[in-house]
Design a protein around this nucleic acid. Structure first.
Lengths: 231, 231
DNA sequence: TGTTTTAAAATGATATCACATTTGTAGGGG
DNA sequence: CCCCTACAAATGTGATATCATTTTAAAACA
């Protein structure tokens, strides 16, 4: 077992205890603080977060409804395992949903937004240099989220975040096993396409972004794990 | 206020109280037992279901994470309102997600499955004759679900069900305002396409099924409500 | 009559406790 | 050495009580 600590997040004053627990656990899953297959207990989490079990229970239930945490038949909790079939399905869904979201957001893209995204992308370069994977993951997701949420009639973002949650624990392993991070190039492609008002190119860049970050390296890791298991 | 009673569902012995509350409330939302905009209270639901507030709270939290129930800033709960923009977005998502699911399920379609679906479709004819809208809604969803869940690597079904939950309260109003129900024809088209091993035709029938049941009548109702409000 | 103030009721949030189930472990038997 | 049983610890579940906040209603005032 490597790092098992749950990353802290700022607790805004409007948050109830349950919401704080929810967002903190959610962030932990997103950035891959829990390895796939990790067993969780309500009391254990309550102790780690220094809260009573009640709000933890509610937070965990929410995450289980978003398929971020699996509830087993004996009512124990665990982070779902990843399999090649599930991985392919999740990545394919990510692509379809994010392209859908991007198409619907495209008419709302403005110069101001492009500039905001460019600044965020610059900060991501800093996170890469510092090898701060948590911050990189968060900023990468924020980058996509800012774009998708431009569309005011929003129903797809929660679905995308559910997929992100399910990919998070595995994605972390993928990132840790990869030396070169090439997400940012695709982000710059996206920005260039936005400036050129070229929706097709923007969506193509998004698809490449997701594929590059997931498929190739993910498939490799799954194959490696399988081989290791076979030996 | 018309019917506000929460439809009963059988409580399986493996269910915890929280799960029973969750499935019962979820079913109520799905079949449109709550009108859009309905205010809910934890204690009120607890009283209606004859349970203590704790499991109700957990069930409600799960449903809020699935966007079936809205949590307002003052922590009160309500069934989300429907707007033309949100409606179009939800229906478009339904189409994309269900076509995705159907494509991935298609290789697993067998004669036995087709026969099972045909039987279910026959029972839906009975529900239409009896004008049992709750049963019709449930069976219609089960029809689609059986198909989509043929694919063992399943990640899309929870997303589809989240969309169903969000359309449920409004869809009920649509159905109530429609005299002729033509869902079943499309189901028979789907079955015919499956027998002919024609995936394209099957997906086309699904898209028509969703569009027929939603877009036309839904748009009409929203326009009617808007006009009524304007007057 | 309409608006503001104030008190009471209702509601949400959460800690705690009691109970049932499950897990882990030590001891005994094969 | 392996498997089964028994007991203890840990865990999930759900009811209840308490507190803070919000809503509702009434009363007071302009």
């Amino acid at each position: 077992m490597t790092k098992s600590d749950i990353p802290d997040i700022p607790r805004e004053d409007w948050m109830t205890t349950q919401e704080y627990a929810y967002y903190r656990l959610r962030n932990a899953v997103m950035v891959g603080a829990f390895r796939p297959g990790t067993a969780l207990t309500i009391r254990g989490l309550a102790q780690q977060l220094d809260l009573s079990p009640t709000p933890i229970r509610e937070a965990v239930r929410r995450l289980s409804s978003e398929n971020a945490i699996e509830v087993l038949g004996n009512r124990r909790l665990k982070i779902p395992e990843m399999s090649p079939g599930r991985f392919e399905e999740l990545v394919q869904l990510r692509i379809e949903l994010e392209i859908h979201a991007a198409e619907r957001a495209f008419p709302y893209v403005s110069e101001i937004i492009i500039e905001r995204l460019r600044e965020l992308d610059d900060r991501m370069d800093g996170a890469i240099a510092a090898r701060d994977l948590d911050a990189l993951t968060r900023m990468n997701q924020e980058f996509h989220k800012i774009l998708y949420c431009l569309n005011p009639y929003q129903a797809v973002m929660p679905l995308i975040e559910s997929i992100w949650l399910q990919l998070g624990p595995f994605q972390r392993q993928v990132i840790e096993n990869i030396e070169k991070i090439n997400v940012v190039d695709r982000h710059k492609e996206m920005l260039a396409a936005m400036r050129a008002r070229d929706m097709i190119a923007m969506c193509a860049a998004i698809e490449s972004d997701i594929r590059d970050g997931s498929i190739t390296s993910g498939r490799l890791l799954l194959r490696k794990q399988k081989d290791a298991f076979a030996v």
